[in-house]
Amino acid sequence: MSAHGTSPPAPQALSPTREAIAMFVRRRAAIAGLVLLALIVGVSLIGPVVYDADPFDIAAAPLTPPGTSEAWLGSDQQGRDVLTGLVYGGRATLAVGATAAGIAVLIGVTIGALAGFFGGIVDEMLMRVAEFFQVLPALLFAMVLATLFSPSLIVIALAIGVVSWPPTARLTRAEFLKLRELDFVAAERVIGASTGRILWKVILPNALPPLIVSATFAIGTAILFEASLSFLGLGDPNRMSWGLMIGSGRSYMLTCWWAVTFPGLMIFLTVLAISLIGDGLNDALNPKLRERR
């Protein structure tokens, strides 16, 4: 503060977003996660463009171990190249994961926001619906949905999204319950803002930090979900995915470890990267947690 009676120089105006980014950048694990995820996404997106091959083609003798020139990471029981599978399988896995998480967040945020903001009977009814979905065995329910309809990527993403929104709805509801009582929401009413405006333009931006974190973790969960469905043979059989590779190689696991290990490793690394990013975002966006460290 200046001692000369002039107004103190205003501290550098940092928006909450930029402050959070600065915080995030300082966390090494989070940056490592981001780099790892960028690599995986990059290979999955660009790989199939530059590396022209059909992952379902026979590329080598069945069960070729890794390290040979025709199949660097080996081939599975049908002679399909594992490396090609990894490069091509990422797209389906990541797309389904991101779409499913997007659907879950969209449903969860809408339902949670309405329940938390309006309370009363609206809250009661929406939360009973959420509980209904929560007590259903999610994997089983997703399996039913996936078998009822033709197992295309969209159907699988929808099935995963529809079963995994309740936690997001609960989190959103809690945030809205807390935020709707704050004075700036009352102040917003006083200036004559409509309910829709208060919901989505006033409260939602304040609720975003925990929601971003939860959405990040939701992607990780959705990827695991997709892998489980594909493993059980309920994925899209015409699209190579990491889950499908593990699923088809599972009976040869002991003689042909590479056909399941490498796609498993990819799923592990992807979910790990997303979790690291989620943790970093949590630290960056939640100032209370930040102080505890």
Partner: peptide
């Protein structure tokens, strides 16, 4: 509201959207 009749609150700390 806000146009013809306005209101200010007790807690300036929490009355502005952070």
């Amino acid at each position: 509201r806000g146009n013809k009749i306005s209101m200010i609150f007790q807690e300036p700390m929490t009355s502005l959207n952070p």
